[in-house]
């Protein structure tokens, strides 16, 4: 019985150490991050979004499902408290809202900064943190490992103060994205239950004319 326990303990320790080594390995530098990201062809993950502000006694919580197909297809589907879909492909970005029992296109608001961030998420998922012109990137090996992006110009700084991208232990997977607006206002998206490299229907990412 004691031997069995020892074997189990050693196995668990080996798994934890190997996982940590793997994690440390893929977050070591930009090249290792890019190489790990390129192994990810698709992602489906649930997410929880928490908006915090000084005036809130508790965060505003939203939840949904995130889909990604390399190199440029993304779908962010909010299921609560408000149903909405943000989808992106090579043609552009489209937002849909649930109104009168159906999804309708958002035709009013075009927040440039938000569009820049979403376009950049595409680059980040491809492991490319240097492609965007709006943010300077720095790798903090942690643990936990994270990438810190700071706006390069004043115009972008008006929208966002800083972006932190948490890297998961699993190679190529993002754990969280935290957008800081300044004055202690943040939006943190935490991803969980990620399944990688599964076939995802093309129509999830189609943009209606």
């Amino acid at each position: 019985m004691r031997t069995k326990r020892r074997i189990l303990f050693v196995l668990a320790l080996t798994f934890v150490t190997a996982r940590a080594a793997l994690s440390a390995e893929w977050t070591q530098n930009w090249d290792s991050i890019r190489a790990a990201a390129q192994q990810v062809k698709s992602i489906r993950a649930e997410f929880v979004q928490k908006k915090e502000m000084k005036i809130l006694t508790r965060p505003l919580v939203s939840a949904g499902v995130f889909y990604y197909v390399a190199p440029d297809k993304i779908r962010l589907e909010y299921v609560s408290p408000v149903k909405s879909i943000l989808r992106m492909n090579a043609k552009g970005i489209q937002r849909l809202f649930w109104r009168d029992d159906r999804f309708v296109k958002d035709t009013a608001i075009s927040v440039d900064a938000l569009q820049v961030v979403y376009r950049d998420i595409r680059n980040w998922l491809n492991g490319d943190f240097s492609a965007n012109k709006s943010f300077a990137s720095a790798l903090d090996q942690g643990p936990p490992a994270k990438i810190v992006l700071t706006p390069k110009d004043a115009a972008m700084k008006q929208f966002l103060d800083r972006i932190e991208i948490g890297l998961a232990a699993r190679p190529g997977v993002l754990e969280s994205i935290t957008l800081s607006e300044g004055n202690a206002a943040t939006t943190r998206i935490e991803f969980k239950s990620a399944s990688l490299n599964q076939a995802l229907p093309e129509n999830l990412f189609e943009i209606e004319p």
């Binding site: 908006k51 939203s62 909405s84 608001i109 607006e181």
Partner: peptide, 13 residues
């Protein structure tokens, strides 16, 4: 009163 408008994605407008 204080009024805050946000996008569904959490950006304060």
């Amino acid at each position: 009163l204080r009024a805050v408008l946000m996008t569904v994605e959490g950006l304060t407008l």
